[in-house]
């Protein structure tokens, strides 16, 4: 099983990861972070293949690691 580690505090909710994710796994959290952004989260991590496209396009390097 793959895992995407998201740093909630770095995420600005720009949704680039969501738009590029081949499995459409990203959604915005309903709790904002300390900068006032709603960060992304993955609810169904078991569906992730660990392709790391999200990490490649994330402009804030808020996806700090991808394990496969």
């Amino acid at each position: 099983m793959a895992e995407v580690i998201i740093d909630r505090e770095r995420c600005k909710g720009c949704l680039l990861c969501a738009s590029f994710c081949p499995k459409q796994l990203f959604t915005l959290s309903d709790k904002f972070n300390s900068s006032g952004y709603y960060p992304v989260e993955i609810k169904e991590m078991e569906k992730c293949s660990g392709c790391a496209v999200c990490a490649t396009v994330c402009p804030d390097v808020a996806i700090t690691a991808v394990d496969r």
Binding site: L16, P59, D60, I63, V66, D67
Partner: peptide, 22 residues
């Protein structure tokens, strides 16, 4: 297996760039 990791050379500070800026 780790396929992606935030480079250690990047300091902890959150970028000041606008959301989505590449």
């Amino acid at each position: 297996m780790r396929v992606f990791e935030r480079p250690k050379m990047l300091k902890d500070k959150v970028f000041h760039y606008c959301p989505g800026c590449t």
